[in-house]
Amino acid sequence: MFKSAKILTLALLIMTAALPAALAAEKNPNVTEVQVSGSHQEELAPDIAYINLGTVTEADTIASAQAKNAEVSEKIRRQVEGLGIKSEYIKTAHYAVTPLYKNDDSGKRIPTIKGYQITNSITVTTSTEKAGEVIDTALNAGANQINNIRFGKRDETDVKNAALAQAVRDAMTKADAIAAALNKRVVRVKTVNENGINLQSPEVAGRLYSKALMADSSATPISAGLVMLTANVQVVVELE
């Protein structure tokens, strides 16, 4: 017991003796702390498309509207799958039942239901090259809504990580430049914070298609354009 107490006392003495040196190191006037920002931005060619489309049906009763919608929606799914797109890449995005009200002679809506509207939309994930074919196939199968088309990258995680690495390199280049101007050098990285990374994809707004328009339309050309990738970081370094 006595021996343990002596060892503990000795350890406390050593720690107490080392404390002033540690504090002095923290307050070293030769060390300068600098915060720098880093960024990276580039345009990439997208290779994947997310197409949101669907069908709207109306009928006097909910059951009738649902039956009509289900028939068309199932046909759309079958024909899109016929293009070689697996079922897991065709997902329900929105389903809604909306009552339709009558209007009086002045055009004002009155609280009398005249029927129901069913909206059923899906999102199809496919290659950019096949986007136009998917749209044409869906329209021919009975779709009357193309809500939007969004483009992206299949390897999104990889390209985002690469962009972050480039942003950090940009920050360190700035830190080295500041250090050189002060006749110092970067001796330590204290913190690195991600300040946002974004893959901004062009989005094409859709429209409601009438049967007459679909009958007169030719093949749908889809141009994906480019997606913009940006990454930002904040880095705190010490110079000496």
Score class of each variant (00 low, 15 high):
80 V>I: 09
63 A>Y: 12
87 S>K: 12
73 S>E: 08
30 N>P: 00
33 E>H: 10
56 V>M: 10
37 S>T: 14
46 P>D: 02
66 Q>I: 08
83 L>R: 03
84 G>M: 04
56 V>A: 09
79 Q>D: 08
55 T>V: 15
35 Q>R: 15
64 S>M: 10
58 E>S: 10
66 Q>M: 12
55 T>E: 03
60 D>T: 14
41 Q>W: 02
43 E>M: 11
72 V>K: 08
29 P>G: 03
38 G>E: 05
86 K>M: 07
75 K>H: 05
49 A>I: 06
45 A>S: 13
58 E>A: 06
65 A>N: 06
32 T>Y: 05
51 I>E: 00
70 A>C: 04
49 A>K: 02
32 T>W: 01
74 E>S: 14
63 A>D: 15
72 V>P: 02
61 T>L: 07
51 I>L: 02
53 L>A: 02
44 L>F: 00
77 R>F: 12
34 V>K: 10
82 G>A: 07
61 T>H: 08
86 K>L: 09
38 G>N: 07
88 E>Y: 12
85 I>H: 00
50 Y>F: 11
68 K>E: 14
29 P>M: 05
59 A>I: 10
81 E>V: 05
63 A>S: 15
73 S>C: 02
69 N>P: 04
41 Q>D: 07
70 A>H: 08
31 V>S: 01
73 S>G: 07
83 L>P: 04
88 E>H: 11
52 N>I: 04
29 P>L: 06
71 E>L: 12
46 P>H: 04
36 V>E: 09
40 H>T: 00
47 D>Q: 04
82 G>L: 04
32 T>Q: 09
61 T>C: 08
56 V>E: 11
39 S>L: 08
50 Y>M: 04
45 A>H: 07
52 N>H: 08
